[in-house]
Write a protein that binds this DNA or RNA. Structure first.
Lengths: 195, 195
DNA sequence: AACGTCACGATACACTCGTATCGCAAAGAG
DNA sequence: CTCTTTGCGATACGAGTGTATCGTGACGTT
């Protein structure tokens, strides 16, 4: 066997470059040559690891999902209790707008294809549903008043976090403002909401 | 004077075609030839009305803004009182996800450039701020409890409506579900919220 | 040491892109 | 009718695209 290379690592590295371009120019702006230049490698190498452009896009979409998931999970390292976990989760989503705009923008780019492409759509819905379930569970576990409808509240909180992330992304709100808005809503549910 | 043509109307017609392509393929997927084909005209005609591609994109962005504004205003025709106007406004935003996905998707496409391009960014922020002010005013006018912070509540409601619109767009929620979630939040503010 | 396999670069080709530049037809002005 | 302006189609050209196909090293096996 000849030269040994970590196939998966190389693919991930190239997919990362693809996501950066995707955030800048949109989905259609991602080109083989562009990714090669962004990653500082030859055009042939990209072609070697992703036979066709479609492969690159698929891999990028899946990497995006993992990246966002990782970003959110990283924010939960030192969470204490379900209420705190809930708040940190939502804050992590909001902070995508300022800390990882690349992921958020790439997500928006893929959203367009999700409307047409069933595969990407399923990827999107699966991710969204998972987060929704998780948030609903956290709401149910941390609510003081047992009368709250966890599912509906989770929809409110998730949609709110997403909307705030977009607001932060374009600079309509600062992170501090967005955090305050989020805490305002959390307090209304009878949940602790940071300082 | 030779043949008389409604310049503005032609430009709007072509910009409409551009928005459709934008929703399908993203910003970078909008091409002169593509717009020509979508509109059923020659490539030269598009070039005649928009000297360069950048002109086309600018015109499309402005048309997008007017279209969304028109869509929302159309929903307020038979609004009765500030509370009803508030609800209809928010619902109109949510319904962009199901009734005018083209506008919503095109908006997401332009969002990417808003992060880099100061002009588009300003267009975006100006539109968002205007809606925010309007919603804040409606909240203040229709709130039973004078203690509510209209600005913060407006941020919550606007971000919520945007997030719900995205959810509806990808099919995570139905319009009925999204409406219920929105009404749930409105009721919590002590506002009437439809049936 | 010879070999086969794989990573990777270089090149070729058909295609689409944006833009510039023609040319013709139509229609009001004289 | 003629002239001039404008709407619009057709074409040309360079740059950039995705993909196919080479070539050339580097390595593990035998």
């Amino acid at each position: 066997m000849p030269k040994q290379v970590d196939h998966a690592a190389r693919r991930a590295e190239l997919a990362h470059a693809a996501l950066r371009l995707c955030a800048r120019d949109g989905l259609a702006g991602v080109s083989i040559g562009g990714v090669a230049q962004e990653a500082g490698v030859s055009k042939g190498l990209v072609q070697h690891y992703f036979g066709a452009r479609a492969d690159l896009m698929r891999a990028s979409a899946q990497l995006l999902r993992r990246e966002i998931e990782g970003h959110v999970r990283a924010a939960l390292r030192e969470a204490a209790g379900p209420a705190d976990t809930l708040r940190r989760t939502l804050l992590a989503v909001v902070e995508l707008g300022s800390r990882a705009p690349v992921l958020l923008l790439a997500g928006h780019a893929f959203l367009a294809t999700a409307v047409t492409d069933p595969d990407v759509r399923e990827l999107y819905r699966a991710g969204g549903d998972a987060v929704h379930r998780e948030i609903a569970a956290l709401v149910a576990a941390s609510a003081a008043d047992p009368g709250v409808e966890a599912g509906a509240e989770a929809h409110v909180l998730l949609a709110l976090a997403r909307g705030l992330a977009d607001g932060v992304l374009v600079g309509e709100l600062g992170i501090a403002e967005a955090t305050a808005v989020l805490d305002h809503q959390l307090r209304r549910l009878g949940l602790p909401a940071g300082s």
